[in-house]
Amino acid sequence: MDKKIRLPITEETAVSLYAGDYVYLTGKMYVARDAAHKRLSELMEKGKELPIDLAQATVYYMGPSPARKGRPIGSAGPTTASRMDKYTPALLDNGLRAMIGKGKRSEEVLRSIKKNKAVYFAAVGGAGALLSKCIKRSEIVCYEDLGAEAIREIEVEDLPAVVVADCHGNDLYQTAAKEYEKPEK
């Protein structure tokens, strides 16, 4: 089912989402990937304040290509989410609501999504030019030294994504392939 969703995603909205829903997201979200996650995790371990507000936040796992003049951002498709698995349960426990990436998540992350009433979306991997057009504004929030891996805040309009893991315990990657799997000839 196609759904239009305004960010931030409330608990109520998260609960209403099911694996397989096709959504269009509009609003503000953070962009962070490997190196930024490592830094956030180190701050959390030391009990220090984070440079971003995780309450009901959505994070897009993405490292854009540089923006050409007059554009907010370059190519901007999702990166593989499993590399963030190690850091994710702690972020979810601290209020993170939604993640956008591509690829499988660990059992631990799936359990944490369920426990925290969160949601994991997949955006189309390798569609960086198309997704770039949905991003209307982008600014670096912190860790500028990380280049493409800096934490950004972006404003998106109708960014297409598919619910892969919902808070009801469904994982589309596990069910969808089975539906089209054909027995060996």
Partner: peptide, 29 residues
């Protein structure tokens, strides 16, 4: 698959935008 068809359609659009507006096909260049 209807969802698969939609994704492949998105990839067609992506290629068109990439070539037309000089945005890399994928951000991982």
């Amino acid at each position: 698959s209807p969802l698969g068809k939609k994704i492949l359609g998105d990839l067609q659009k992506n290629l068109k935008i990439a070539a037309g507006e000089q945005i890399p096909i994928c951000q991982d260049t």
